[in-house]
């Protein structure tokens, strides 16, 4: 509990936290405005609506909110490296793990809140800007059939944001530099996505639609390739192999982070 209080006070006291949050939300709103302007009139497709609401920009490796969460996680660990707190919290392995867990928790909660705020803000923008509005409302009506289809990618989006925050924190814990951690975090999806999709194609599957819409790099590739991207619009369920493929690197990262702490004298 004490480390959690420390972490919350640390986040609250730093200006960079608020700046990152504000910057992410502003960028999200701006992207949503641009995307909403470009949307065709009439019935809004699920994919387009999700992209607009989560403010996914092609060629960025991750959604903006996920990048913000990653930056928060990286800075959270980078702070301890550059301005270490009390020596008591640094010397024993148990305490360092406690601090790491507190940081993961705080970053996770913050990332989820950030993702939720992004979705709400962009939904409001979409609602205001998309021309006649009536058709959009149907998508966001809990009673409608399309709602579940929109909701699932949004849940993925929230999870992706939290995962990015944790990844930023853990990668920084390995390289001990916030900037390097953030760069690696940006590089990993760009490397991982094509490899994963190649593997999936080899095994005769495609990206599940829910993830395709959220991973901007893949989306960007599809955009560049143009028309034939439409053919891949096969909705595949998120089966176990893919979940494993995504979760194995995450678990490995967590283990590496924990192992790295063993031989250290400081966080």
């Amino acid at each position: 509990m004490r480390v959690l209080a420390y972490e919350v006070r640390r986040l609250r006291g730093l200006r960079s936290t608020w700046l990152i949050l504000a910057a992410v939300l502003l960028a999200d709103a701006a992207v949503a405005v641009v995307l909403a302007r470009q949307l065709p009139a009439g019935q809004l497709g699920t994919a387009a609506a999700v992209r607009c609401v989560t403010a996914v920009v092609p060629l960025l490796p991750l959604p903006i909110a996920a990048l913000g969460a990653g930056a928060l996680g990286a800075l959270s660990y980078g702070h301890e490296v550059r301005y270490p707190g009390l020596p008591a919290g640094r010397v024993s392995y148990r305490r360092r793990l406690g601090l790491l867990v507190a940081k993961l928790a705080a970053t996770g909660v913050l990332a989820v809140l950030l993702a939720a705020a992004t979705v709400l803000l962009d939904a409001a923008v979409l609602r205001l800007l998309h021309a006649p509005g009536a058709r959009v409302a149907a998508l966001f009506d809990p009673a409608s059939a399309g709602f579940a289809e929109v909701l699932r990618p949004l849940v993925f989006f929230v999870g992706l944001t939290a995962l990015a925050g944790w990844a930023g924190l853990l990668v920084t814990s390995l390289v001990r530099s916030a900037a390097a951690g953030l760069l690696i975090l940006c590089a990993v999806p760009a490397l991982l996505e094509p490899v994963l999709s190649l593997l999936l194609r080899q095994s005769g599957r495609v990206w599940p639609a829910q993830l395709r819409e959220l991973l901007p790099f893949q989306y960007g590739l599809d955009l560049v390739r143009g028309a034939d991207a439409q053919q891949l619009e096969v909705s595949a369920a998120l089966d176990g192999t893919l979940l494993a493929a995504v979760s194995v690197p995450a678990v490995l990262l967590l283990l590496a982070g924990l192992l790295a702490q063993i031989r250290r004298r400081a966080l």
């Binding site: 004490r2 480390v3 209080a5 420390y6 919350v8 006070r9 640390r10 609250r12 006291g13 730093l14 200006r15 960079s16 702070h79 550059r82 301005y83 707190g85 009390l86 919290g89």
Partner: peptide, 16 residues
């Protein structure tokens, strides 16, 4: 951290 205010810094460590 240079961006922290003195009171916030001390309160943060008081939390720890």
């Amino acid at each position: 951290h240079p961006g922290l205010k003195a009171r916030a810094h001390l309160r943060m460590l008081a939390g720890a």
